[in-house]
């Protein structure tokens, strides 16, 4: 449904995208996972026909993003990272406006947005600029869906959003996916990768990997040992000072440790920490998560 082949784009001296290739299948929920400045927005804007690539090709539902840009605009819905509705129009007026621009009516596609829109419908006469963050997000999503797009592209819809609202937002996306909409969504939250069918890990304009979240973590070659003791700050520093340490990073209540050449066992680590007088030591091997993989790839690519 989305094909990207060798796309590069630069701004002045910054190479925003370096020879990026990927594809998204019809009906997939596809994640672009990477920090600010990775190139996520640039890629999305090229796919939305809002920006020209320097080189390479991209197709949306078989349509070329340069030659067929007008046709593409009718079949895609886009929710940019920055709130881009009309602040001085009401909720209802915004929705009607977008429906009219796409030659349809709110009634015609109401079914698609009902679950989302009913939550803001009580405020339909309020100006969009006066809505709370969560309500703005729901309105923006309703407007992006009102012409029943085949492909929905969402640029960091959950950035700065609390954990509860983030969860609800992903539940909405899962529902939309069932209505035969292909979804590409970007996020800087690594834990959201697990909610996608497949993801591209992206950093400094380069794709580090494209695969299902399960495959990305299961093919990770390094052994992760999670460690904790009573003094977390000292623990991190002591682990970093250990000669056999490759990396030691805080992961919530644990420190995730990797040893040089994968050659450190948890028993050895425990012994080292006991010598340093750490109390209540726990050291056990765990499955890596996406963030472990991303951080390891990031260190390698630098």
């Amino acid at each position: 449904m989305i094909q990207v082949k060798n796309i590069s784009k630069h701004y002045d001296e910054t190479e925003a995208l370096k020879n990026v290739s990927l594809h998204v299948e019809r009906g997939e929920l596809f994640g672009l996972i990477g920090p600010d400045g990775a190139g996520k927005t640039t890629l999305m804007r090229i796919l939305m026909t809002l920006l020209l690539a320097d080189s390479g090709e991209a197709k949306m539902d078989g349509l070329d993003v340069v030659k067929n840009f007008k046709k593409i605009r009718n079949i895609v819905g886009y929710m940019p990272g920055r709130f881009s509705l009309y602040q001085d129009l009401s909720v209802e007026e915004n929705l009607n406006f977008f429906a009219t621009v796409f030659g349809t009516t709110v009634e015609e596609n109401y079914e698609l947005i009902r679950d989302i829109y009913y939550q803001i419908e009580p405020f339909k006469t309020r100006r969009a600029g006066k809505l709370s963050g969560g309500m703005k997000q729901k309105l923006a999503l309703s407007c992006a869906l009102i012409h029943k797009p085949k492909i929905l592209v969402l640029d960091e819809p959950t950035t700065g959003v609390d954990a509860v609202s983030r969860k609800e937002f992903w539940e909405m996306l899962k529902k939309l996916q069932k209505q035969d909409i292909t979804i590409m969504v970007s996020t800087p939250y690594m834990d959201e990768a697990n909610l996608c069918d497949r993801v591209a890990l992206i950093q400094n304009g380069q794709i580090l990997d494209v695969d299902s979240p399960q495959n990305i973590t299961s093919k990770f070659p390094k052994k992760i040992i999670r460690v904790r003791s009573q003094e977390m700050f000292r623990l991190i520093n002591d682990l970093r000072a250990f000669e056999k340490t490759e990396s030691a990073f805080a992961f919530g209540q644990f420190v995730h440790f990797t040893g040089k050449n994968n050659a450190v066992e948890s028993a050895e680590l425990k012994e080292y920490l006991e010598k340093l007088n750490h109390k209540s030591i726990l050291a056990e091997e765990v499955e890596p998560d996406i963030e472990d993989v991303f951080m390891s790839m990031q260190e390698q690519s630098q």
């Binding site: 800087p188 700050f233 991190i236 963030e291 991303f294 951080m295």
Partner: peptide, 24 residues
């Protein structure tokens, strides 16, 4: 106030190193 929004996971953790140091 949300000091680490949007940064990559390594930078986010290095930022917390600074926080720990300040608290220390």
């Amino acid at each position: 106030d949300e000091p680490t929004g949007g940064v990559d996971p390594v930078t986010r953790r290095k930022f917390w190193d600074l926080i720990y140091e300040a608290a220390n």
